[in-house]
Design a binder for these strands. Structure first.
Length: 782
RNA sequence: GCCCGAAUGGCGGAAUUGGUAUACGCGAGCGACUUAAAAUCGCUUCCCGACAGGGGUAUGGGUUCAAGUCCCAUUUCGGGCACCA
C-alpha cells in the first residue's frame, strides 16, 4: 500500500503529456471549438508568483473542463518580453536583454510545466522574437497607411527616471506606472495611434460584451464621451477663440473666457502690458508637476489683457489664463459660466469676476454640435532600446517614410551601451551603422524610438492561431476557426491593453483582415492573492510566497492549484493561508486513499450493491454493514449525481471554490458510506480540472477515460423529501413527506396543522397558510 | 468630490430565482490508534440558556406570509476616476 506522493505522480504525468504532446490543438471541422488564454506574462527574473498560478489555473480548469467534454480546445501560451525591467537589468549588469529574456523564458516555461497546465506548447510566442515583431511592425505600417499612425508635436508625459515619454494610460496619479517617479510635461514630436477614430464604436459595443461590469464601467469612463457644442468667440481684431461646452444653453451667463497655459494661440492673444506676467504664469504652470496640480486645487490664473465678445450678449468679456483648464481636452479654452459651473464660480469669486444668473436658451443658437472624448490618442513611441523598432526612416528634409514591407523586420541591433539619456532619443541613436538605410535609392536615417510594449500585445491573441506563419501576421482560415477568444483571463490592464486590443480588432476588421469586431467574448478578471498578513506581497516586505516552494515542500502542484481555486471567489482578492493549503492537501490525500482502498478490495459487486472500501493508511475506516444495501446504493447514486451536477454547474458559473467544496463533501460522503468503483471514476473525472496529475493517476488505475460525466435527474429525485414548517417565518418543525404528497397542498397543510408540535405554536388561531412546493415549505401565519 | 464593489462565527468563506443562515476548509476542543509523537480516523464547535426557549448576517428604518438576499438612510473598508468645461 503506497502513500500519496504528489511529486512522483506529477513528474510521471508531466513526462507523459510532454512526450505525447497531449494538448496540441488543430483545426477540426465538426467539433465545437473553444479557445482560452490568460494575459500572457512578462517573464521576470523572479519566476512565477502565486498570482500567475491563480490566473493560469483558472484558464486551465476551464481548458480541461471543456477538453473532458470533448470540445476542440486551444489553450496557447506566450511571453510579453519587451520592456523596461530587462533593459534596466542590462544597464546594471551589462547582460544583453536578449540573453536575460531567453533565460527568463526558459525558467517560466519550466515552472509552468511543473504546474501541469494543458498548454499547446507548439504555439509558444515571444514578442521580442524577430519572427514575431516583424509582424508587429507590419501592423504598424497598416495603421500608418491609413493615417492612424501619425506624428504630432505637443506636450507629453515624460518620465525623467526612465527617460522616456509615456501614454496617458501609463501615468497613475501623476506618476510613472513602471518606476513611480513623478512625470513631467515635455514638448516633443511623438508617434500616436489614432484610437479616438474608434471612440464611438469602442464605447457603444461595451454593453454587448460578456465582461465584468467593473471593467466595462472603467472603459466607459475612460473614453468619456460628452455631447456639447463648439462656440466661436470673436476677439478685438481678427483673432477668435473657439471653446467647447456641454452647456451651450448657459451662454448668456458666460462672463469670461479661460484658456489653458499651453493654449497654442496664447502669445497672439495676450496684450503687451500683460505679456510678462502671462508668460511667467505659463512657465510656472509647465514646471508644476502633475502631483502638485492635482493636490493643490486652489484656483490660480492671470488676466491676459485681451477681451472677446460673447456672441449671445454682445458684451465684451475678459480672457484669462488658468491651469484649471486643460490643453488636451476640447479646444483648450472654455467659456466660464460661474452661475452654473462650480469651478468657474470658484475662479470668479477669487478674482472678483462677474457672476450673472442668466436664463437658459436654445442649445443650438450660437454653436455647432460637437462630441468630445476624454480619451486621447495613444502615444506609442518610447525613447528606450528594448522594444520593437518603429519601421520608419527619415529623408534629409526630415520627412518620415515607411520601411517597405519586404524589408521587415527592422532588426533591433545588439549594442553595448543601453543607457538612455535626456536627449529625447533612445540608445539606438548610438548605433551608427544601423541608423543608415537606403529606400528607393535614397539614403535615410532610421527612427530611433521603439514601440510601446502595449503595441506588441495588441495582436498576439491572433498570432496564436498560426504562430509560425511566415507569410502573414495571422492566417485567415485559422483565425476564422479559433477566434474570437472564448475566455480571456487576467488581473490587470482594465483600460490600457483591453482597450487597445479592441481598437486594433476594429481596425483590422475594417481592413478585411479579421472576421469579427470584438476580440474577446468573455473576460474573467481575477483578484490578487495577498500575503498572509493581508498586505500586498513584495520582496521588500519579505512576505512573498513562492509557488515553487509550495510544490517542492511536498504539497505538489495539484495541491497548489486546487488550493488557489478553493481560496475564495475567483474575482475577489484573497489572503494566502498556509494552514489551509494543508487542508487541501489532506483532501487530495483522502482521494488517493480512497483509490488505494478500492484497489485493495476491488471485488466487483456484480449486483450493484455497495462494496466497502478500506484504506491502507486508515484502518479505522467505517465499513458499510447496511441491512438493506439497495437503499444505500440508491443514496450513494443520488450523492454521485448530485455532485456531478453541482461541480458542472459551478464551473459553468466560475464558482471554483464551491466546486472544490462539493468534491470535498463527496469524498466525506464516500468515507462514511463506502464507494463503488464508479464513484471513484466520477470523483477522478470531476477532480481532473483542478488536480490533473492525481486524477490522471486515479483514472489510469481505475482503467477509465476522462470524459466528463453527466448527471441524470432521475437519480436526484428521492421518494421522500424534508418538509419545512415555519410559524410566522420561524422554523418550527420538519417532516418527512412523500414526493406524491407534496403535490397535494390540502393534504400537506392538514397534516401540518394536525401535528401536536406545530399546534403548540398555533394556539392563538391560524390566520393563513402559505405552501411553497418548490421550497418544500409551509409557513403558518398566526 | 464623483462612479463602482463589499461588510455573514475565532478565521477564509457558503447560501445560484426572496423560502431551513453559517455548506466546505482552517483553527480550537474531545476521543480512537500508538510505548510516545507525527500522520490518519471519528465526534463537537454562532451566541445566551441546565432545559424549555430566545437572540443572531455592519447600523437604523421599510416592503413581504417570509429578507443575508429587495427598497431608503447611515457607518466602515476596498477599487476606479479625479478641475474633462
Amino acid at each position: 500500500m503506497d502513500r500519496y506522493e504528489p511529486l512522483k505522480i506529477e513528474q510521471k504525468w508531466q513526462k507523459i503529456w510532454e512526450k505525447e504532446e497531449s494538448f496540441k490543438a488543430s483545426e477540426e471541422e465538426g467539433r465545437p471549438k473553444m479557445m482560452l488564454a490568460e494575459m500572457f506574462p512578462y517573464p521576470s527574473g523572479a519566476g512565477l508568483h502565486v498570482g500567475h498560478v491563480r490566473n493560469f489555473t483558472i484558464v486551465d480548469v476551464l481548458t480541461r473542463f471543456y477538453r473532458q467534454q470533448r470540445l476542440n480546445v486551444l489553450r496557447p501560451f506566450g511571453y510579453d518580453t519587451f520592456g523596461l525591467p530587462a533593459e534596466n537589468y542590462a544597464i546594471k549588469t551589462g547582460t544583453a536583454p536578449q540573453e536575460v529574456t531567453k533565460e527568463n523564458i526558459a525558467n517560466f516555461r519550466k515552472q509552468a510545466k511543473k504546474l501541469g497546465y494543458a498548454i499547446d506548447w507548439s504555439r509558444e510566442i515571444n514578442t521580442s522574437d524577430p519572427e514575431y515583431y516583424k509582424w508587429t511592425q507590419w501592423c504598424f505600417l497598416q495603421l500608418y497607411k491609413k493615417g492612424l499612425a501619425y506624428q504630432k508635436e505637443s506636450y507629453q508625459w515624460w518620465c525623467p527616471e526612465d527617460q522616456t515619454v509615456l501614454a496617458n494610460e501609463q501615468v497613475e496619479n501623476g506618476k510613472c506606472w513602471r518606476c513611480g517617479h513623478e512625470v513631467e510635461k515635455k514638448k516633443m514630436k511623438q508617434w500616436f495611434f489614432k484610437i479616438t477614430e474608434y471612440a464611438d464604436e469602442l464605447l457603444d459595443e461595451i454593453d454587448n460584451l460578456e465582461w465584468p461590469e467593473k471593467i466595462k464601467t472603467m472603459q466607459k469612463n475612460w473614453i468619456g464621451r460628452s455631447v456639447g457644442s463648439e462656440i466661436e468667440f470673436k476677439l478685438t481684431g481678427t483673432n477668435s477663440i473657439t471653446v467647447f461646452t456641454t452647456r451651450p444653453d448657459t451662454i448668456l451667463g458666460a462672463t469670461f473666457i479661460v484658456v489653458a497655459p499651453e493654449y497654442a494661440g496664447l502669445e497672439y492673444i495676450v496684450a503687451e502690458d500683460c505679456r510678462d506676467e502671462v508668460m511667467k504664469y505659463k512657465a510656472e504652470a509647465l514646471k508644476k508637476s502633475e502631483i502638485e496640480r492635482q493636490e493643490n486645487k486652489e484656483k490660480t490664473g492671470v488676466f491676459t489683457g485681451a477681451y472677446a465678445v460673447n456672441p449671445a450678449t454682445k458684451e465684451k468679456i475678459p480672457i484669462w489664463v488658468a491651469d484649471y483648464v486643460l490643453v488636451g481636452y476640447g479646444t483648450g479654452a472654455i467659456m466660464a459660466v460661474p452661475a452654473y459651473d462650480e469651478r468657474d464660480r470658484e475662479f470668479a469669486e477669487k478674482f472678483d469676476l462677474p457672476v450673472v444668473e442668466a436664463e437658459l436658451i436654445d442649445r443650438d443658437l450660437y454653436g455647432t454640435p460637437k462630441v468630445m472624448y476624454k480619451m486621447r490618442d495613444w502615444l506609442i513611441s518610447r525613447q528606450r532600446y528594448w522594444g520593437c523598432p518603429i519601421p520608419i526612416a527619415y529623408d534629409k528634409e526630415g520627412n518620415p517614410h515607411p520601411i517597405p514591407e519586404d524589408q521587415l523586420p527592422v532588426m533591433l541591433p545588439e549594442i553595448k551601451d543601453y543607457e538612455p539619456d535626456a536627449s529625447g532619443r533612445s540608445a539606438l541613436a548610438k548605433a551608427k551603422d544601423w541608423l543608415k538605410v537606403e529606400i528607393d535609392g535614397e539614403e535615410m536615417t532610421r527612427e530611433t524610438d521603439t514601440l510601446d510594449g502595449y503595441a506588441c500585445s495588441s495582436w498576439y491573441l491572433w498570432r496564436y492561431a498560426s504562430p509560425h506563419d511566415t507569410k502573414a501576421a495571422w492566417d485567415a482560415e485559422a483565425i476564422k476557426y479559433w477566434e474570437p477568444v472564448d475566455y480571456y483571463c487576467g488581473a490587470d490592464h482594465a483600460v490600457a491593453h483591453l482597450l487597445y486590443i479592441r481598437f486594433w480588432c476594429k481596425f483590422f476588421a475594417d481592413m478585411g483582415y479579421l472576421p469579427f469586431r470584438e476580440p474577446i467574448k468573455r473576460l474573467l478578471y481575477n483578484g490578487y492573492i495577498n500575503a498572509p498578513d493581508g498586505k500586498k506581497m513584495s520582496k521588500s516586505k519579505g512576505n512573498v510566497i513562492d509557488p515553487l516552494d509550495v510544490i517542492n515542500d511536498g504539497y505538489g502542484a495539484d495541491t497548489l492549484r486546487t488550493y488557489e481555486m478553493f481560496i475564495g471567489p475567483y474575482d475577489l482578492d484573497a489572503a494566502w493561508d498556509t494552514r489551509s493549503v494543508g487542508g487541501v492537501y489532506r483532501f487530495l490525500n483522502r482521494c488517493y486513499n480512497l483509490l488505494e482502498g478500492k484497489q485493495s478490495d476491488s471485488v466487483p459487486s456484480g449486483d450493484g450493491s455497495l462494496r466497502p472500501v478500506v484504506t491502507g493508511e486508515a484502518p479505522s475506516f467505517s465499513v458499510v454493514t447496511s441491512e438493506s444495501p439497495r437503499e444505500e446504493a440508491i443514496g450513494l447514486l443520488q450523492t454521485r449525481h448530485k455532485t456531478i451536477k453541482k461541480v458542472t454547474e459551478d464551473i459553468h458559473r466560475y464558482s471554483f471554490n464551491t466546486a472544490v467544496a462539493a468534491l470535498m463533501e463527496y469524498v466525506n460522503e464516500l468515507y462514511k458510506s463506502g464507494a463503488e468503483k464508479e464513484d471513484l471514476i466520477v470523483l477522478a473525472k470531476l477532480l481532473k480540472p483542478f488536480a490533473p496529475h492525481l486524477a490522471s493517476e486515479m483514472l489510469e488505475r481505475l482503467d477509465s477515460d476522462d470524459e466528463w460525466p453527466k448527471w441524470d435527474e432521475k437519480y436526484l429525485v428521492a421518494d421522500t423529501v424534508e418538509l419545512v414548517v415555519q410559524v410566522n417565518g420561524k422554523l418550527r418543525a420538519k417532516f418527512e413527506v412523500s414526493v406524491d404528497d407534496l403535490e397535494d397542498e390540502d393534504k400537506i397543510v392538514k397534516m401540518v396543522l394536525d401535528d401536536k408540535k406545530v399546534q403548540k405554536y398555533t394556539e392563538s388561531g391560524v390566520k393563513k397558510t402559505i405552501f411553497v412546493k418548490k421550497a418544500k415549505l409551509v409557513n403558518i401565519v398566526v
